[in-house]
Design a protein around this nucleic acid. Structure first.
Length: 802
RNA sequence: GGGCGGUUAGCUCAGUUGGGAGAGCACCAGCUCGACAAGCUGGGGGUCACUGGUUCGAGCCCAGUACCGCCCACCA
């Protein structure tokens, strides 16, 4: 055993060993209680980031504890095909070859994606293993596996048969680059500088005009009304009359709607239902026509009229502005900064567009899910996220589930030449309505989250009745990031309830977001991203796990290299104290029976700390968990206990050696879930190992009946630290104390200050106890504590002034 | 414009029903090299963002203000 613990090599050796020995395996076994954790399958679009590493560390710490506690643990690995993200990544890659997906064609493009997946999938599983995540790697699943596809198709047909999936022509978010609709959750909002144009619309009867403001003059061609606020006296007389839309010279009504903001611009809004979500809603409510002048490619279409068709929007804007300028209908233009929606992936500006899409109605699906959340059957941690999750689910609108991209689950929808729709899990032979054999399958694919929603049970073989499902569903835990609550968590809950009749898990841990050291999001493009493998190479996986958990204390945390280094030091300290005990104990058999005071003390301390560890785990408080481990190891085990017994170990004291070995075993057990590799490595160096640490039973709940000795010595040390006063200890207590706390050389200089301090404290305590309002109002234990302090200070003062 | 979180030592952060301000790192001093590329012991260092309020007593509870961050949002 070297004096410096070197994780490289050691960690990978154990990762291989655990996996090869089948210690990660989860197999159905009705005789054992199961524990299943649904871990987010990462997108195969590149490398893992520190957020993934944190997520894995938290989950694996729980998983390893549960495994030691005797549960039949399922920690399911896999990937998400991540529709648009993956397609975008592959397209970017193609662009480096000067190609587009259209150059390849759909089939060849899909082939390229599969190749991409094979390459990156392997890389990502390698990263999972390097973190030490004890997933059952045999069970790796992918959301486009054959069996998984069947589950997705079944889900679609199920919802369609219930009437909850339907097709409708509505305004949607259109990405002009990917040429697909997007859900609201797949957008980003960015600030842009635009020009706001003030345009005069003359009244049809020639008597006056209304000025509106717009940033998109080209959409004037699709205007169908002008709206004002109902209470706006400026326009009161105009409501119900008609104005003439510039360029197209169409007569449209002036309507009143309270969704118009009086304060914005001129307080009058041009209504363009075909190209704006708000206008769309106003248009629907007022029965207005829906005109589209912009096509799928983002250019002006035939409806825009001669002279406009084929122009870019910018060209059309200019042409409209020129027209207005000529006729004096352009009042002014001004600089205007506002936010616009862009595609989350390619950052293209979103084009609101009316389009025929497939939708999933949410009303029926979300009802039981909300009930599960409100009743606490499913609980988010922390509590604030629970409220947020409920709120988001309540507000969830119908879900646009169809996408026009190429990579994903193709909709199980067939259409005959007469336009009848047939929905079936597998290709139907004939149209369900007219019997036509000429069926063409929809080229749309499903929103990637539609399939992700099935992860907890589709990975276990649903829709078949499998032993895995019986054993591992419903599961227990899910750990995930905050931004995915609406996309994934809530959808897993409602699909689980709908298809399996129960929730997929009962606890959801929303972990911290790790930011760059300088603050702000970690991002590859900003150069603030960090690769977990680089951290592992520099510090070791155990150190990284420790450090990430230590950081994960609040909603957003900054990455701190110091926390990782703390983990490295802990591993090294543990390694060295083990080295002391193992080398000095000469293969002594472990014997947990304490004889001396320090042995009572350390065993009591281990038991005491174990209960705190268990509490932190139950509360998913990982930061305090690892803090507890650090102080247990450093302060208690090494600085006190090991220092106290060191001499006797070298002297060949058999009892000290046996107990030290037993105490070390216990310490390793408690540390293993958080820092699996170094603990297993040390464990393997202990004499007579019958089994790996990873499958060693978690100790029984602690017994701290020896806490008396602990309390006495601790109190003595505490008082010594505070005051430098010599504590009257006898026998063993005195000996331990002297062994680990060196008395000060002189006492005289400090004694005067100490007397002064004690007198002040006594005065303060007496003052409080003399205050009737304190004695009457403060809780009894607080008053008692104050009395005890007073008595103690007086004893100390007496001892000092003797 | 909403929602959530944050503001405590030079840095990163704890602080569990309100009851004598803490850890790790960094810094200083002493000790010790027979587990520890180090360790041990001790020490210096803080108007707990600000303002008001409740209370015998507030880092903690209430109201407000200022910054910072994240998420959300149809002001054309």
């Amino acid at each position: 055993m070297d004096a410096l613990y070197k994780p490289e090599g050691v960690e990978e050796r154990w990762q291989r060993t655990w996996e090869e020995e089948g210690l990660y395996d989860a197999d159905p076994d009705p005789s054992r209680r199961s524990f299943a954790i649904a871990h987010p399958p990462p997108n195969v679009t590149g490398d893992l980031h520190l957020g993934h590493a944190l997520q894995l560390s938290l989950a694996d710490t729980i998983v390893r504890t549960r495994r030691m506690q005797g549960y039949n643990v399922l920690f399911q690995p896999g990937f998400d095909h991540a529709g648009i993200s993956t397609q975008n990544a592959v397209e970017k890659h193609l662009a480096t070859e000067g190609k587009t997906r259209q150059d390849l064609g759909r089939e060849a493009f899909e082939q390229r994606v599969w190749e991409w997946l094979r390459e990156y999938g392997g890389k990502i599983m390698f990263q999972f293993r390097r973190v030490g995540a004890s997933l059952d790697y045999r069970r790796e699943r992918f959301t486009m596996d054959d069996g998984y596809v069947r589950a997705v198709m079944r889900f679609f047909v199920h919802l369609y048969d219930k009437g909850w999936i339907y097709r409708a022509n509505r305004i949607i978010n259109w990405c002009p680059f990917h040429l697909t609709s997007l859900s609201d959750l797949e957008l980003q909002h960015v600030d842009v500088d635009d020009m706001l144009a003030y345009v005069r619309y003359p009244l049809a009867d020639g008597d006056g005009e209304i000025t509106i403001a717009t940033v998109r003059p080209a959409t004037i061609l699709a205007d169908v009304a002008v709206a004002v606020h109902p209470g706006d006296e400026r326009y009161e007389d105009l409501v119900g009359r008609e104005v003439v839309v510039p360029v197209v010279e169409r007569r449209v009504p002036v309507i009143a709607d309270d969704r118009v903001e009086r304060e914005f611009g001129t307080g009058a809004l041009k209504v363009t239902p075909g190209h704006d979500p708000l206008d769309y809603e106003i248009g629907r409510d007022h029965g207005l026509p829906e005109l589209s002048v912009i096509g799928a490619d983002g250019r002006m279409n035939a409806e825009a009229g001669p002279g406009f068709e084929g122009l870019t929007q910018q060209e059309a804007d200019e042409r409209v502005l020129a027209w207005l300028q000529e006729r004096g209908q352009l009042e002014k233009r001004e600089q205007y900064r506002h936010t616009v929606a862009v595609c989350d992936r390619c950052k293209s500006r979103i084009e609101p567009r009316i389009s025929l899409q497939w939708w999933c109605a949410m009303d029926e699906l979300k009802r039981p899910a909300l009930e599960a959340l409100r009743s606490g059957r499913v609980r988010y941690h922390p509590e604030s996220q629970h409220r947020f999750a409920i709120q988001s689910l309540e507000d969830a609108p119908d879900w646009n589930i169809s996408r026009q991209i190429w990579w994903g689950h193709q909709l199980p929808v067939w259409e005959c030449p007469d336009g009848h729709i047939t929905v079936a899990e597998t290709e139907p032979e004939a149209c369900a309505d007219c019997g036509s054999k000429e069926l063409t399958r929809s080229t749309d694919v499903l929103d990637t989250w539609f399939s992700s929603a099935l992860w907890p049970f589709a990975t276990l073989g649903w829709p078949d009745d499998t032993p895995d499902l019986l054993q591992f569903y419903p599961g227990d835990l899910n750990t995930t990031a905050r931004d995915i609550i609406r996309l994934w968590e809530n959808r897993m809950i409602f699909s689980g309830l709908e298809l399996m009749g129960d929730v997929p898990f009962t606890d959801i841990v929303i972990h911290s977001t790790v930011h760059a050291p300088a603050g702000g999001r970690m991002s590859k493009s900003l150069g603030t991203g960090m690769n977990p493998l680089a951290v592992i190479d520099a510090y070791g996986a155990d150190a990284m796990r420790y450090g990430l958990m230590k950081m994960a204390s609040s909603q957003d945390v900054r990455f701190s290299e110091g926390a990782i280094d703390e983990g490295r030091k802990l591993a090294n300290k543990l390694w060295n104290v083990a080295r002391l005990i193992i080398l000095a104990s000469d293969g002594a058999k472990p014997d947990p029976r304490p004889r001396t005071l320090e042995e009572h003390w350390i065993l009591a301390r281990l038991a005491q700390t174990q209960r705190r560890i268990e509490r932190h785990l139950a509360e998913f408080d990982f930061s305090h968990l690892v803090d507890e481990l650090y102080h247990l190891t450093f302060d208690d085990f090494c600085d006190w206990y090991a220092e106290a017994i060191k001499a006797r170990l070298y002297d060949g004291d058999a009892g000290a050696r046996a107990t030290a070995t037993a105490a070390l075993e216990r310490l390793l057990t408690l540390l293993h879930p958080a820092m699996p590799h170094v603990t297993e490595e040390i464990w393997s160096n202990l004499p007579d190992r019958e089994r790996r640490l990873i499958v060693t039973p978690w100790p029984e709940a602690g017994d701290d009946s020896q806490a008396g000795a602990l309390a006495r010595v601790q109190e003595a040390a505490e008082m010594y630290r505070r005051s430098g006063v010599r504590i009257p200890l006898e026998g063993e207590e005195r000996r331990i104390f002297d062994a680990v706390v060196r008395p000060r050389e002189d006492g005289d200089g400090d004694a005067a200050a100490e007397v002064e301090r004690l007198r002040n404290e006594i005065a303060r305590a007496e003052g409080m106890l003399a205050n009737d309002r304190f004695v009457q109002n403060a809780p009894a234990h607080v008053v008692d504590a104050e009395r005890e302090k007073l008595a103690r200070y007086q004893r100390e003062l007496d001892a000092l002034t003797d």
